[in-house]
């Protein structure tokens, strides 16, 4: 639904970087790996949190 606040595995706060990551990869068309490096998301466990996330709030919103 919403981006998890922290990485499930290590506990780093990843929610902080979501909007910038989304904006730069979707609209800026940048390479996600480079964006993650610049954001300081180094570990694979934190990177998958951002890479594999899909916002679903807009899809759920009409049903409540």
């Amino acid at each position: 639904m919403m981006i998890p606040v922290r990485c499930f595995t290590c506990g780093k706060v990843v929610g902080e970087h979501w909007e910038e990551f989304k904006q730069r990869t979707k609209e800026g068309d940048e390479n996600p790996a480079d964006v993650l490096d610049e954001l300081g998301v180094d570990r694979p466990c934190c990177r998958r949190m951002l890479v594999s996330h899909k916002d679903l709030v807009d899809i759920v919103a009409p049903y409540q």
Partner: peptide, 25 residues
């Protein structure tokens, strides 16, 4: 956002201000 949290104590504040809590329609 986490940054919208208002604290009663000046020493305590969210360390990260851009964590989305929930999208409101």
């Amino acid at each position: 956002y986490s940054g919208d949290l208002v604290s009663a104590d000046g020493m305590v504040a969210p360390a990260d201000e851009n964590v989305p809590i929930i999208d409101l329609k």
